[in-house]
Nucleic acid binder design. Structure first.
Lengths: 106, 106
DNA sequence: ATATTTGTCAACCAAATGGTTGCCTTATGA
DNA sequence: TCATAAGGCAACCATTTGGTTGACAAATAT
């Protein structure tokens, strides 16, 4: 299995999606993020590490606090892939239509 | 760990994304899908099972063949979540602005 | 000065994931 | 009729994942 740490895998976990949701409303430190979740701060920190490794969260030190900010640009990878798939889907009969058209003309 | 089998998890795997990509261009049976991948047909079948369980692929029997067709509607869940997060992000200063506005008026 | 808060590091764990192989059933084509 | 192609099923495996606990360092507050 290849080492994967991409945006798709990052947003696959519901907890991480909720974290992104929270951070979309403004920056928070790790303890504040953990407030709504019934898991340890260490678990939260691990999620944050994954999110920041793929660019969805950026960190900044502020005294002893680690301030986390959402950075949603990388989600373009996701919407781009969906858009591309839909494009293919919409054009899926093109070849067939071209073939039928050609056949008709002959 | 809760039982998860949702669209987000389904598209987290690169092989499954490639399968969707292929199927977006037209229906294929399991053997045909496996053509481009260096993994066993059983592995492909497992991926297809996951994709069909979350509605991204629909199956139809055709003799001994299992024809797979892409069904991209469920990807709305993904784009909707991204859109919602971006909306929150864009409105993230609203509360602060409202507060400042109110303070100014007093 | 000391207690508390914030977060890190490391070890550990059970379950999930993505893959394998072998065997079996059932259509299909020669 | 019989070999073969398509796929299902089950057992197994290594690695990854998402979580835990305990100990620790360093800011901050009292």
């Amino acid at each position: 299995m290849i080492e994967r740490r991409d945006v798709f895998q990052a947003i696959a976990d519901p907890t991480r999606r909720m974290i992104i949701h929270k951070l979309s409303q403004g920056p928070l430190n790790i303890t504040q993020i953990g407030q709504d979740f019934a898991i340890s701060k260490q678990a939260i920190a691990k999620h944050i590490k994954i999110l920041s490794e793929c660019g969805l969260v950026i960190m900044s030190q502020k005294g002893r606090q680690q301030v986390c900010e959402a950075r949603l640009d990388e989600l373009d990878q996701v919407t781009d892939w969906v858009t591309e798939s839909r494009k293919l889907w919409n054009n899926r009969f093109e070849k067939l239509e071209a073939f039928l058209d050609k056949t008709k003309k002959q």
